[in-house]
């Protein structure tokens, strides 16, 4: 199957969970559906949900939790 990448439309800080005390939206190896949230990008203190454009298996997060991300940068790899 083809490897696909979810791209961040915004620059900012990437979070894999909705709050520090919550579990990650997705772990590597999890199944993901189209439209499912895979993380948040915080830009200037406002939070935007990042949803998967693809269905399949999460194979790799390319950005770590709380790391900086540029607009257009790939966040996660999905084997669909």
């Amino acid at each position: 199957m083809a490897k696909q990448q979810v791209i961040s439309p915004l620059p900012g800080t990437f979070y894999r969970k909705s709050a520090p005390d919550q579990p990650s939206y997705k772990e590597e190896g999890d199944q993901v559906a189209v439209g499912e949230t895979i993380g948040l990008v915080e830009v200037m203190k406002s939070f935007h949900e990042i949803k998967s454009d693809f269905a399949g298996t999460v194979t790799k997060f390319l950005i770590d939790n709380e790391d900086a991300v540029m607009a257009g940068q790939a966040l996660v790899e999905i084997d669909g």
């Binding site: 915004l10 620059p11 900012g12 800080t13 915080e42 830009v43 200037m44 203190k45 900086a68």
Partner: peptide, 9 residues
């Protein structure tokens, strides 16, 4: 100057 996205606006 660059306005970074990481802090308040």
């Amino acid at each position: 100057c660059e306005i970074p996205p990481f802090y308040d606006s």
